[in-house]
């Protein structure tokens, strides 16, 4: 069966702010039932790209199509198919939890079918029934996030943007949000997620887009992305040992620049490189592991420092 048409199609997004080009030709797609993780170090252009995708910023060039509707030319239809959970808690503090969902429903046309039933359903799904008549300020951080996500999907959108939905939450609340994201995916929504938590990106995303200096640096599954940017294996060893000088010389000869984490060096090697390292230091104690998204950020950080 051919893959479904993407619900989100972003092409050639470009934006300059304050005379500096912060997003430069970014493009990506997201299909129904897919979670797309948008990653990148600070200043990579994630937030600006996302804000253009949901209409907060006007792109200098490029297009955003939501469920086939151009966000500029056919804005109302595109926005009807779009749900947004911003990083800030932007619920309406003049209303209760239920009131927030009811009020949000007023901001959509065509009107939401059976909005009262939809709101009851969301209160149940998001475990908010007991707090339905509470003001949002009374909720814990995790439940505020639940409300924010519930607001974003009250109109049954096809594409949902979640901008750092778990920032500042404790581990239990984060896992609660992960379950909700999985549920949105199971309902067939296309979910675009930004996060600083690498475990979260790995666990939730079907596909990742890595932005660097306003451009798409790489994209694919977590493994593909790590393979292309970091390498196949990561070697960890302490640098305060007598053998460190020899290892340092070995790395310099191969133009390998390790990331320094506390008292350890972390550096990526492909299979051939690892075989050469093993042969060069037979008596050395070190650890070899699979790369993670943390390594990816350390790699990008090194490049930034170098630049």
């Amino acid at each position: 069966m051919p893959p479904a048409q993407p619900l989100l199609e972003v092409t050639g997004l470009t934006k300059s702010l304050g005379g500096k080009r912060v997003v430069d030709g970014v493009g990506f797609t997201c299909r129904a039932g897919e979670v797309l993780g948008l990653l990148g170090p600070n200043g990579a252009g994630k937030t600006t790209s996302l804000r253009m995708c949901y209409g907060f910023l006007r792109p200098d060039a490029g297009t955003v199509r939501i469920a086939g509707h151009d966000l500029v030319a056919d804005g109302d239809a595109a926005r009807r198919a779009l749900g947004v959970c911003t990083q800030n808690d932007s619920y309406d503090s003049d209303f209760t939890v239920r009131g927030n969902l009811e009020q949000t429903a007023h901001y959509y046309r065509p009107k939401i079918d059976d909005s009262a039933a939809r709101i009851d359903e969301l209160l149940r799904q998001f475990d908010l029934v007991d707090y339905a008549n509470h003001k949002p300020e009374m909720l814990s951080g995790g439940y505020k996030r639940r409300l924010m996500i519930a607001r974003a999907v009250v109109h049954r959108p096809q594409v949902v943007f979640l901008d750092e939905p778990t920032t500042g939450l404790d581990p239990q609340a984060r896992m609660g949000v992960w379950e909700l994201v999985s549920r949105l995916r199971a309902e067939g929504m296309a979910v675009v997620l930004t996060t600083h938590y690498m475990d979260e990106a790995e666990r939730l995303s079907d596909r990742l887009i890595l932005l660097e200096a306003g451009k798409v640096r790489s994209e694919g599954t977590t493994r593909e992305l790590l393979g292309s940017v970091v390498g196949e294996h990561v070697v960890m060893l302490p640098f305060n040992t007598p053998e460190a000088a020899n290892v340092d010389a070995w790395m310099r000869a191969r133009q390998i620049r390790p990331a320094t984490v506390l008292t350890d060096w972390h550096f990526a090697l492909d299979a051939t490189g690892l075989a050469a390292f093993v042969a060069a230091f037979p008596g050395l104690r070190y650890e070899v592991r699979q790369p993670t998204l943390d390594d990816l950020f350390l790699t990008l950080g090194k490049k930034e420092d170098h630049a």
């Binding site: 911003t86 800030n88 974003a152």
Partner: peptide
């Protein structure tokens, strides 16, 4: 302070 504008702007309201 209230950020209710931001909440409205995530919908069909511009």
């Amino acid at each position: 302070y209230q950020k209710s504008w931001e909440g409205q702007l995530t919908t069909q309201v511009r």
